[in-house]
């Protein structure tokens, strides 16, 4: 649950957050490129959830499993919820909401890794 793929998710989410922030600064709305990026991220998060469940089943280690699952499922749900909330906002705040949501993803991925490693139990 650590490793390359998690770092890749963090990288993609941060890049999308920067892109959304640039759009907000330029007074733009949510556009096609941002949505495609969000779609790619969503597929990665789905793979992350599936990989996490598989690894969880395959280990005898004890760690906060419910919390682990909650973070993985939350990761999958929060970006679409944020975009839905931002969708019909006419001001630049809409795309700023998307930037905030993409910034939450890396934080949650780090928490997934901490829970997996048994930190903060």
């Amino acid at each position: 649950m650590t490793g390359l793929f998690a770092n890749l998710i963090i990288g993609v989410a941060l890049a999308l957050a920067v892109w959304a922030a640039v759009l907000a600064a330029a007074n733009k709305r949510i556009n096609r490129s941002l949505l495609i990026g969000a779609g790619v991220l969503e597929v990665m998060l789905l793979a992350y959830l599936i990989g996490g469940v598989v690894q969880m089943i395959g280990t005898d280690r004890s760690f906060a499993k419910f919390e682990f699952l909650a973070y993985l499922v939350g990761l999958l749900i929060i970006p679409p919820l944020g975009i839905a909330w931002a969708w019909d906002e006419k001001s630049r705040s809409g795309v700023a909401v998307v930037a905030v949501v993409f910034l939450v993803v890396p934080i949650m991925v780090v928490r997934v890794q901490q829970v997996w490693a048994g930190v903060g139990a």
Partner: peptide, 19 residues
């Protein structure tokens, strides 16, 4: 995709309120 609507409504859930 330029923003055309001025946000001057007195509502808590639009504009900055969205964030």
């Amino acid at each position: 995709d330029d923003v055309t609507t001025a946000v001057n409504e007195r509502v808590t859930n639009r504009g900055f309120g969205r964030i």
